[in-house]
Computed example of a mutant assay.
Amino acid sequence: MPGTLYLIPNTLGSTGAAAGALDHIIPLHVQALTAKLDYFVAENAKTARGFLKLIAIDHPLARPLQEIEIAELNVNTPPAALAGLLAPLLAGRDAGLVSEAGVPAVADPGADLVRLAHQHGITVKPLVGPSSLLLAVMASGLNGQSFAFNGYLPTDATLRAKRIKELEGRSSRESQTQLLIETPYRNGAMLEALAATCQPGTLICVATDLSLPTESIRTQNGGKWKSLLAAGKMPDFHKKPTVFLLLG
């Protein structure tokens, strides 16, 4: 009988290494289940070990950390390698799929493994934890009945402005909140592009370091953001994970 593929949420950033540091982010039963597994699939084995070290503070691991198997699945993993990652589950072993941050398989290469697991009749069990996208929608004040995640926009300024206009148009026509992300060191450029391209009445939310002590969430219309940026009042979000939302 195949094992179960558990989709294990990670933190959205550094939480410190004290006892109970995860308790307000990762439910206790999720921590306890994670500690019982000895096979994981993760984007990066090193950061996955760091996460397991935090788990181990309050929940002893099934095996010493150096004996726990961690296979990598990231953008460089060829599709042909996915079957090998599932082999332990087909042999009856439970596994945990862990993202670099937040929930796996959402804006995450783990989705391909989950799809293949379903094709092989493997039980997939999603576990509760932080999603930066949903937290941003919740706190933005924008439309939570209809929203779409668009990932990264083009880095070329002209193409990026064109894409922003497309998203704003769709948002206005369908009353649909549009979500996007950017490489953290380009957050400033993204906000400047949104403020310069969007209509003055379009709502723009900037949600940074969600669930962390440095969390910041601000929703203003495009005209207000443009005035703030002109006055040199850029949010404190340089090199910090940020979700951008707009509603035309």
Rank of each mutant, 00 (worst) to 15 (best):
G248S: 10
E69W: 06
S172F: 13
G102A: 10
T123Q: 13
L22F: 09
A42C: 08
N150H: 15
L33H: 09
K240A: 14
A56W: 03
A45L: 09
Q220G: 05
L37I: 10
C205S: 15
G16T: 06
R49I: 01
R63C: 05
N74R: 12
T77F: 10
T214K: 14
F149K: 06
T197M: 05
A161C: 12
K162T: 13
G20F: 14
R218F: 00
A195Y: 03
S175P: 01
L245C: 06
G129C: 02
L142A: 04
T77E: 09
C205I: 02
F40S: 00
A107W: 04
P79C: 05
I204F: 11
L86D: 00
G141W: 05
A19Q: 10
G144F: 08
G84P: 09
V30T: 12
D209F: 04
T155H: 14
L210R: 03
K125L: 07
G50K: 04
L65D: 13
T197Y: 02
A19C: 05
P2W: 07
G110M: 03
S131R: 02
S175V: 12
Q119M: 11
K233L: 14
P241V: 10
S14Q: 14
P154I: 10
L5I: 06
G129H: 00
G121I: 05
D94Y: 08
D156K: 15
A193Y: 03
A189E: 15
G151V: 11
L142Q: 04
A71Y: 01
L5N: 01
H59N: 08
G13A: 13
E192K: 12
L89K: 00
K233D: 13
P200M: 11
F244W: 05
L22T: 03
V41A: 02
L73A: 03
I164Q: 00
L86Q: 01
T77W: 08
G248Y: 02
P64T: 02
L142H: 04
Y6A: 01
A19R: 11
H238P: 00
T155Q: 13
G50N: 08
H238M: 08
A62E: 11
P104S: 09
Q220T: 07
N76K: 14
I181F: 01
R218K: 12
L191A: 02
A148H: 12
S146W: 15
A117F: 01
L22H: 03
H24S: 15
L212E: 04
R173K: 13
N76S: 14
A157K: 14
G110Q: 03
P79Q: 12
L22N: 06
L52T: 04
T197L: 05
K36V: 04
M190H: 00
L153W: 06
N143A: 11
K226P: 02
A19H: 10
E166C: 06
T15V: 15
T155Y: 10
E174D: 15
K46P: 05
S14H: 14
D112E: 15
A117V: 02
T123N: 09
S131K: 04
G188S: 10
I122K: 03
A32L: 06
E72I: 07
E43F: 01
N187T: 12
V98N: 00
R163T: 13
A196W: 01
L179S: 07
L113T: 07
